[in-house]
Design a protein around this nucleic acid. Sequence first.
DNA 1: GCAAAAGTGTTGGGCCTACACCCATGC
DNA 2: GCATGGGTGTAGGCCCAACACTTTTGC
Lengths: 227, 227
Amino acid sequence: MLQNIKVTVDAIVFSYDPLQGVSILLIKRKNPPFKESWAIPGGFVEDEESLERATQRELLEETGVSINYLEQLYTFGNPERDPRSRIITVAYFGLVKASNYESLKADTDASEARWFNIKALPSLAFDHADIIKLAIERLRNKIRYQPIGFHLLDDKFPFSDLETLYSILLDREIDRRNFKKKVMSLGILDKLDEKHKPKGAGRPGDLFKFNKSTYEKLLKEGLHFEI
Amino acid sequence: MLQNIKVTVDAIVFSYDPLQGVSILLIKRKNPPFKESWAIPGGFVEDEESLERATQRELLEETGVSINYLEQLYTFGNPERDPRSRIITVAYFGLVKASNYESLKADTDASEARWFNIKALPSLAFDHADIIKLAIERLRNKIRYQPIGFHLLDDKFPFSDLETLYSILLDREIDRRNFKKKVMSLGILDKLDEKHKPKGAGRPGDLFKFNKSTYEKLLKEGLHFEI
DNA sequence: GCAAAAGTGTTGGGCCTACACCCATGC
DNA sequence: GCATGGGTGTAGGCCCAACACTTTTGC
């Protein structure tokens, strides 16, 4: 069998900060084509490694970020998507906790990897704009029936962070009381004894922790979570 | 870049018949490995063709079946999934109308391509059992929020066909009145003036037609269809 | 004391579920 | 006429959406 097709993986990685909003991790390309353009981190799969492993390796090499949640997004295989040759790419969808948000600065030259707010993306190499569009759609849909939003938050978080995340992604206001009732009724949040200190004025809020075991039990039973 | 990975596509194709239930199209392998085993139709992607086109080409070559609905399912890339070499496969999920159900007999030797009821699948080559498992899951989930079931039915169909399809896939009884109310309220079914003649005894039922334009309008607005 | 953020309950309406009888045809 | 399959409406309950005031802190 003669076949001249190469395989890459790409990682669309989201992070969230209640003040900054939702961001995506991009790198600046050092080589042609699209030299100096921003692009999704990724690269060629090695012959003996799994696709997930390749994704995590490339991400770490290029940005220094390691990931909390990873799932396959879609495979892009249009023959014209790369001007050099036929390259199909398996795109992965990743989430990192807020506490990992700054980690790239320590590992790499800041001019080469940067977080971009999803509302202010630069122009992108290849078909990467399409890939990101699909990833954002996936994120928006996914939080409506699977509370993966927790993977974007720190281990301990005030309830308002979760609420803000949802209002950003759903792009509308959320009724605090109804939202809290709904989320708490799932039983996947444990209230801690600590309080969160707000940055400026304001009443300190309770801190919560994500209850992983209840969540996984619910997932198996077919979780229903309509916001 | 040296990379020794090949790319195939596979098509998991479903069909439905109110009497037979839901079936998947499989082929018998003529070559090793897994010679004489049943497998999902598929094959190597050509250098210049898109993944979708490759899927439809392989499906037509191997089974003679052409398809009504096709979407990407998942890419399987485990390094050990093929004993010969590293082969990743992009699996597609397809639906054919009931009227195409028998078409394979005309085009190919019946001993090489056959429909198997999803409740009585043979043992399968490679990781194809996993792939089919995922495809069935996708089908079950998908009919709950997108009425893709219509792609499995003929252009004109009695309401009971739709009802039976849902009760098979959801594996439970469905209240005829409630189900009809819910589906009709979407406005995606047009009642025709013709009647359906049942096989044996029984009152003839109304025939319905799927209203594509209303459906597509609904899809854009974010269809909600919880059964 | 005032601005900012967080905590907390109730009510009305709509939707979903449960449920049973009659009608048209074939044999 | 009987067996088979198809058509149709209502009532009760539950869940969801709408809605506002009080509390704690920083300045």
